[in-house]
């Protein structure tokens, strides 16, 4: 990805140090021996990743020979039609699933060999999910939904959890909707709560799966605007979509079809 390297005009110093600190912290929390600490390593490294599902006697190859590096601070869209393998790729990137073969290094740590508990910790600390269906818990007020990842992170201080949740909600423009339940919010607002929930643990990656799929176009614009500003703040944003309009807003477009990567292009905005 030579062209990527040149496209990044952000100063690397700050984010890389941050990444290394994060790696060390995670390695300690997962009790991993000898974590690979490379200050110039990409955030995400996929090396000849295959994913095969067994459906009865048949083997379905969902991903074949995927090689993809994503650096800290990039704004990437992964685009493909349904059945192309983009959801499988998203599951692997999000540590919801592990590759059948090949390696996936996140922050220099090989997550392919991790067990369920370690994967849960990686998801909790490194990845912020945004789903098409929002997936908010309907009985909880907005701030309690946002607080959930902090609970699983073992954050014991109630006040600090609430403060962090409120700050994340303010960051997506929902300062005055903190105590509303999801049913009292519009679709766009619900998705913004979900984005706040993804932000609250300050993860390495914001991973959004068809984030505008259930929204009217004006609300979709709002949401894409939020992702744009998150990117401007230096966050890594990955959006999985089948809509070219959405995909074209990202700064880098990875196309996928039938489990293969078709193209990887950078848009100068």
């Amino acid at each position: 990805m030579e062209n990527n390297e040149t496209s990044r005009d952000r100063p690397n110093q700050y984010t890389d140090t941050q990444t290394d600190m994060k790696t060390a912290e995670i390695a300690t929390s997962l009790k991993l021996a000898n974590p690979v600490l490379r200050s110039n390593a990409p955030l995400i490294e996929l090396e000849s990743v295959y994913k095969t599902y067994k459906m009865g006697a048949m083997e379905v190859r969902a991903l074949e020979d995927i090689n993809l590096n994503i650096d800290t601070g990039e704004y990437v869209a992964i685009m493909g039609q349904s059945g192309s393998g983009k959801s499988t790729l998203m599951h692997i990137l999000g540590c919801l699933d592990v590759p059948t073969s090949g390696t996936y290094r996140l922050n220099g740590i090989d997550v392919g060999k991790m067990d369920d508990n370690q994967l849960a910790q990686i998801r909790n600390r490194q990845i912020g999910f945004v789903f098409q269906q929002f997936h908010l818990l309907p009985r909880l007020p907005a701030w309690k939904n946002v607080e959930l990842p902090l609970l699983y992170a073992g954050e014991r201080n109630h006040t600090s959890r609430r403060e962090k949740a409120e700050r994340a909600l303010a960051a997506v423009g929902l300062k005055d909707r903190i105590s509303h339940r999801p049913t009292e919010l519009s679709g766009g607002q619900q998705q913004r709560v979900a984005i706040a929930r993804a932000l609250v643990t300050n993860p390495s990656i914001i991973l959004a799966d068809e984030p505008t799929g259930n929204l009217a176009s004006t609300q979709a614009d709002e949401i894409m605007g939020i992702f744009e500003s998150l990117h401007q703040q230096g966050r890594t944003v990955i959006i999985i979509t089948h809509e070219p309009d959405i995909a074209n807003r990202a700064h880098r477009l990875v196309r996928i079809r039938d489990g293969h990567m078709l193209g990887d292009e950078v848009h100068q905005q």
């Binding site: 999000g94 369920d116 508990n117 849960a120 998801r123 909790n124 789903f131 990842p149 643990t201």
Partner: peptide, 10 residues
């Protein structure tokens, strides 16, 4: 599923 995605261990 959501709780697991957000980091809940088994």
């Amino acid at each position: 599923g959501l709780r697991k995605a957000l980091g809940a261990t088994p």
